[in-house]
Design a protein around this nucleic acid. Structure first.
Lengths: 104, 104
DNA sequence: TAGTTTGTTCGAAATTTATCGAATTACTTT
DNA sequence: AAAGTAATTCGATAAATTTCGAACAAACTA
């Protein structure tokens, strides 16, 4: 039987624009976001970013706490997805425009 | 006769998404941007933000160097405007969406 | 020219953020 | 139960950012 643990993340209404923009203002985190945007769902381990795991983990934490990324545990890995619906509801067009801009 | 000095700002193609997002991720700078967006043109002195002049000047510098704001001298004061066209050309929809989100 | 207004620059201190290795937690597999 | 895999947390350090007062610069005004 597979256990699914909940990960702490802000509620939709608690998501702050400043924190979202700060989260996305780092090139490493933007790279992460773009990959998730393309693939839909990506495990933390699937990023071949040349960087210690602890540093990468820090960036995921920032993305999660800002409300940009949702992570859920599946087995022994964490699956990351964008909180597109929440972000679209709260800040319409922002995430899409940034992803499009970052993809060029 | 009024002298108009040019202020250093990145060229359109040199504007970086990360720097723009970082510039906009600060609440004080967002407040500045929103006021400029509403008014079109605002002098540095027209912001009644309770903060030393040097600190405010720092925030204007960040906004200028990121390519978000253009400043030109008119007589004694600096007039600030958004680089909406440059930003729209480079990162379509980003600035508008962020301003709309920040205005709510 | 002296004084005033507007805003920047400088230099230092405080705060925040990023980085990394080691230890730890959660879960799976053997 | 022991070992392996995935990722986080801890603690320390490094780097970047923010803040502020004091000094400076540019342009106007009396």
């Amino acid at each position: 039987m597979t256990k699914h643990t909940e990960i702490q993340q802000p509620l939709r209404d608690e998501i702050s624009l400043s924190k979202v923009l700060h989260a996305l203002s780092d090139p490493v985190r933007m790279e992460i976001i773009l990959k998730i945007a393309r693939a839909g769902q990506v495990a933390c381990g699937a990023f071949d970013i040349p960087m210690p795991k602890s540093t990468l983990s820090h960036h995921f934490k920032v993305l999660r706490e800002s409300g940009v990324v949702a992570s859920r545990r599946e087995g022994n890995e964490l699956i990351n997805s964008l909180r597109s619906e929440d972000l679209e509801a709260r800040f319409p067009g922002v995430l899409d425009a940034i992803i499009a801009a970052g993809s060029r």
